[in-house]
Computed example of a mutant assay.
Amino acid sequence: MNQPTYPKNTWYVAAMAEEVAGSKPLGRQVCGESIAFYRSHKNEIAAVLDFCPHRGAALSLGYVEDGLLVCGYHGLKMGADGKTKEMPLQRVKGFPCMKSYAVEERYGFIWVWPGDQSLADKALIPHLEWAVNPEWAYGGGLYHINCDYRLMIDNLMDLTHETYVHASSIGQKEIDESPVSTVVQGEQVLTTRYMDNIMAPPFWKAALRGNGLADEVPVDRWQICRFTPPSHVMIDVGVAHAGNGGFDAPADKKASSTVVDFITPETETSIWYFWGMARNFKPDDQALTETIREGQGNIFAEDLEVLERQQQNLLAFPDYPLLKLDIDAGGVQSRRIIDRIIAKENAANVSVQTIAPLQTVSF
């Protein structure tokens, strides 16, 4: 059996909190696991295998009643622990327990641990300062993309493509004319690019205006991409009026944000892409938040066809070697970290499988 190309013993963003609301469950596949998410007692989030033990129907097609997930086929009622609680005119005590998943609602997202449930530790969910600090505002969305999740990581850890894919918004020739630096810090990969004394592209001109700054003056621009496993990329981006320190410029001289990217594998060749932008200027301006969210959503939409066609090509031409250039270092180093994590998981699984028969032998 082929080993998965993604880690499973980790936390992934499975949904935006508002996607799981009321009495309607949400069915979503994460790392090959079909999961039904729903609100149980006291509106707490719950997640169980999206499989009814009666006839195999998708539980996510049902509804929630009194904190239980009701199968929409024959009325079986499932609890958050994966145990069948009741079913009309049936005795359910002997029904098998379905898999339930460690799940947490935090920072406006639903997080799930798709792997070994005994290893799930909520303390491992990354801290997101921008999500709890009132000096920041956030707006984002969700795209489903038919590509390997690592292709999206490559895309975000090398922003050279902005010159070509996003020419009308954030792209400019100075991007691919500026050198890239990549360093590995433990399990984090950091890729940086600085562009000094240039004119801002359309998106950043609008951001400058949104912060009450002149937009037809030279600026210093920066892109600082940070990968952390399993597949999160946070990018510090912005522009400052030239000569004021760039990234370190005072707030009244710049427009800066953090691009938020949570990339969750659905299958080996499809993803749930949670994108957004957090900013620490004018956090109470809801109209500005929506304008930025709409603009960023349009920018990311431009990547969709590129990534999906890239995936199709890689499947159609598996024997063609791909070139690796210095601009690819961020993605390459990120993949090496992922590979090490997967190898460690696989080794642990083999060890468990090896000793398991010894635990069940009877004399």
Rank of each mutant, 00 (worst) to 15 (best):
N2G: 04
N2I: 01
P4D: 14
K8I: 00
W11A: 00
A14S: 05
E18S: 11
V20Y: 07
K24M: 08
K24P: 09
P25S: 03
L26W: 13
R28V: 00
R28F: 07
H41S: 05
K42M: 09
K42A: 08
L49V: 02
A57P: 05
A57W: 09
L59F: 15
G72T: 00
M78D: 10
M87P: 08
L89I: 03
Q90L: 06
K93V: 15
A102G: 12
V112H: 08
D116P: 08
D116F: 12
Q117V: 13
L119C: 09
K122F: 13
L124R: 07
L128C: 03
E129M: 06
N133C: 10
P134Q: 06
E135V: 01
E135F: 09
A137P: 14
G140F: 04
G140M: 00
D148A: 13
M157Y: 15
H161M: 01
Y164N: 10
A167Q: 10
S168F: 13
E174Y: 09
E177H: 11
G186K: 07
Y194D: 10
P202D: 05
P202R: 07
K205Q: 08
R209S: 00
P218N: 10
V219C: 01
R221E: 01
R221L: 02
C225H: 14
P229A: 09
H241Y: 14
H241A: 06
D248E: 13
D248Y: 15
A249K: 02
K253L: 00
T258E: 14
T258I: 01
V259F: 11
E268M: 02
E268F: 11
I271T: 05
W272V: 00
F274S: 01
R279K: 13
N280S: 10
K282A: 15
D284N: 04
T289Y: 12
E290W: 15
T291S: 01
F300Y: 13
D303K: 04
D303P: 04
L304G: 09
R309P: 02
N313H: 13
L315D: 12
F317K: 11
P321Y: 12
P321T: 02
I327T: 14
Q333K: 11
N349P: 15
A356P: 07
L358A: 05
